[in-house]
Amino acid sequence: MKAVAIKFLNITGMRWGIPLVKLFSGEQVLQQLKEIGKTIVAPILAIIGFLLIWSFFASQITTSLGRLPGPVAVWQQAQSLWQEHLVERKKADEFYARQEDRNAKRRAENPGAKISTVEFTGKPTYIDQIITSLKTVFMGFTIASLIALPIGVICGLSKTVMKAFNPLIQIFKPVSPLAWLPIVTMIVSAVYVTNNGFFAKSFIISAITVSLCSLWATLINTALGVSSVNIDYINVAKVLQLSPTKKTFKILLPATLPLIFTGLRISLGVGWMVLIASEMLAQNPGLGKFIWDEFQNGSSHSLARIMVAVFTIGIIGFILDRVMVELQKLVSFEKASL
């Protein structure tokens, strides 16, 4: 039980809970209390301090949208966003219930009647927007990985290819998503002309912008990983005279996986960061658009709602990072003990 709890806390990145678990199981009480002081009390004090300073300065600053919201106002808005979500869901459910009712009646009257179902077209709630953002970032991340991994492997295998690609990589790597966005918008508008495509245009534009900014970390890490594979492993491949395909899949890729995952982790982090900006401008209905709309909206609640979004973005970014760390642990062999 205790071991399970500790493992769970380890995986979820909540290591601060471990001393608590140990304390309740009565293991070295004094030491656990010290540990708790360090890992739980200290961060809590820091957070309380931050909230105090925040609310103090917030009360000092008056903007055109009223007083800058403090922690309490932000918390209220978070709750109200959740309430709005529930209300909207209820509306949707009622809408579908009514529609189902109507259709059932029609079927009863005339079994051969044509029955059409209509999608509910309410405005997207905050939760919907979070989901859209996640979908977009994963789409962008997938595109980025599909491009970066093969090119990275090729760059790692051949110094010539690496030298050839290097200037392009170095030049495009630091470009901001805001610079890419107009170009991507124009290209997508020109190429993706269907009006009822599977993906919305704004979704594709945001996703491509995300991938353009996030693929570099994966590419560079993969290339570095492949080119710096332990010479001993390469010698094994040489002595066994492995074919190039076997060499790649049995030796190079397994040896490179830890570095590839480091790259993917950085890429996902960059992608999530870049996503908000590109959604703002591409009007993809995610968190970025939420922030932009609230900013344009200019109600007395807007700033508090934007701050809710800031915390949401931060927390989701943290969770994504944790997921990547755990995946990385899964694929890594123990390097230190070799």
Binding site: V236, V239, P254
Partner: peptide, 13 residues
């Protein structure tokens, strides 16, 4: 010609 390397050279994965 089989080789036994000084540092084992086993594939850790």
């Amino acid at each position: 010609r089989g080789v036994v390397f000084q540092n084992y050279s086993l594939l850790p994965w």
